[in-house]
Simulated assay, not measured.
Amino acid sequence: MLKNTFWLEKWQSGQIGFHLDKVNPLLVEYWPKLNEGSKVLVPLCGKAKDLIWLAEQGVKVVGIELSDIAIRDFFKENLLSYEQSWYDGVAYYQAKELDILLIEQDFFEFEETDFDACYDRASLVAITKEARPRYTHHLKQRLKSNAHLMLITLDYAYQDGREANSPPFNLLDDEVLEYWPIAEKPIFSQDLFSQNPRYKAKGYSYFSEKVWLIDLIL
């Protein structure tokens, strides 16, 4: 499992190639319709603009993020003000203009429950395979028994057969089904390798992105 210092150093040094500087179009296309006021959990949220889009849909957004740099950049870059409070040594940042609460905490230490949905674009793929069962178990404990999960996965391989030693990590369909047996198959898949020559230039033999929409029965 990657240590927290790995991510904190990434934000400190500005090595955040994983950050998408716009709303993910897959979120806009496939996010399920939720009741107004539903609670949505976004693990390892970084400073994603997806948080803004979700809040604009009338839901309560709770993002969990280790780095205070990411959190403060989120508010600064989106011209949002916030109120900061502390509870049991954990910092909470509540946006004033939108219903977005960012919590500066290790996700494995986050204990709030009863979330109606979870959006995972870059969380499970950032977790090592060894730590994924623990992550998934912890996530399930945070969700209502009938919650919705939107999960985005990456399936890729290198031409020389090597394994990735840093995120994002490969995540096969069979592994998703192991964690979430209720899932059937991805609702969308796109071949990024064919769409963009940079994937070949980086040594990949294929690279696909998939969207899973899972209605839980826990």
Score class of each variant (00 low, 15 high):
Tyr156Trp: 10
Tyr82Asp: 08
Ser166Gly: 13
Ile127Asp: 00
Phe74Pro: 00
Leu101Cys: 14
Asp155Ile: 05
Glu175Ser: 04
Leu79His: 14
Ile182Asn: 00
Thr136Glu: 08
Leu151Tyr: 09
Thr153Tyr: 08
Val176Gln: 07
Ile100Pro: 00
Glu130Phe: 08
Thr153Glu: 06
Gln159Leu: 15
Tyr179Ser: 09
Asp173Ser: 12
Thr153Arg: 04
Ile182Met: 11
Leu172Cys: 14
His148Leu: 11
Asp173Phe: 03
Val59Arg: 05
Pro133His: 12
Pro181Trp: 10
Leu124Asn: 01
Val61Lys: 02
Val62Tyr: 02
Asp68Leu: 13
Val61Gln: 03
Glu175Val: 03
Gly161Gln: 09
Arg162Lys: 15
Gly161Asn: 10
Asp99Gly: 07
Tyr135Lys: 06
Asn165Pro: 00
Pro168Leu: 10
Val61Gly: 02
Glu56Met: 13
Lys60Ser: 10
Gln84Thr: 05
Tyr87Arg: 15
Ala157Asn: 08
Asn146Trp: 12
Lys129Met: 14
Ala117Arg: 03
Ser85Ile: 00
Ala126Trp: 04
Asn170Arg: 13
Gln159Val: 15
Asp88Trp: 00
Glu178Tyr: 14
Ser67Val: 06
Arg162Leu: 10
Tyr158Arg: 03
Gly63Phe: 01
Lys96Val: 13
Val176Ser: 07
Ala91Glu: 07
Asn78Thr: 11
Asp88Glu: 14
Glu65Pro: 00
Cys118Glu: 06
Leu177Ala: 03
Glu104Met: 12
Leu151Thr: 08
Val176Met: 12
Ala131Pro: 01
Arg121Tyr: 06
Trp86Glu: 13
Thr128Tyr: 06
Gly63Met: 05
Leu124Lys: 04
Leu66Asn: 07
Arg142Val: 04
Phe75His: 05
Phe108Trp: 09
Glu130Met: 09
Leu171Asn: 01
Phe107His: 06
Phe107Asp: 07
Glu109Ile: 00
Ile64Tyr: 01
Gln84Ala: 11
Gly63His: 04
Phe115Asn: 01
Phe115Pro: 01
Leu154Trp: 08
Val59Ile: 13
Asp114Glu: 15
Asp160Cys: 11
Met150Pro: 00
Ala70Val: 08
Ile127Lys: 00
Tyr82Leu: 10
Ser145Met: 11
Gln84Asn: 09
Val125Asn: 02
Leu98Lys: 10
Asn170Phe: 11
Leu154Gln: 06
Gln94Cys: 05
Tyr179Lys: 07
Ala91Tyr: 01
Asp114Leu: 07
Thr153Asp: 05
Leu172Asn: 15
Asn78Ser: 13
Phe107Met: 09
Leu98Gly: 00
Tyr87Glu: 15
Asp120Tyr: 01
Ala131Asn: 11
Asn146Ser: 15
Gln84Val: 04
Thr153Trp: 05
Gly58Met: 11
Leu177Met: 07
Ala70Leu: 05
Tyr119Trp: 14
Ser166Met: 14
Glu184Phe: 04
Asp155Gln: 13
Ile103His: 02
Leu66Tyr: 11
Val176Asp: 02
Ile103Gln: 04
Trp86Ser: 10
Gln57Leu: 15
Phe115Ile: 01
Ile127Trp: 01
Tyr158His: 10
Arg134Val: 15
Leu98Thr: 01
Cys118Trp: 03
Glu77Gly: 04
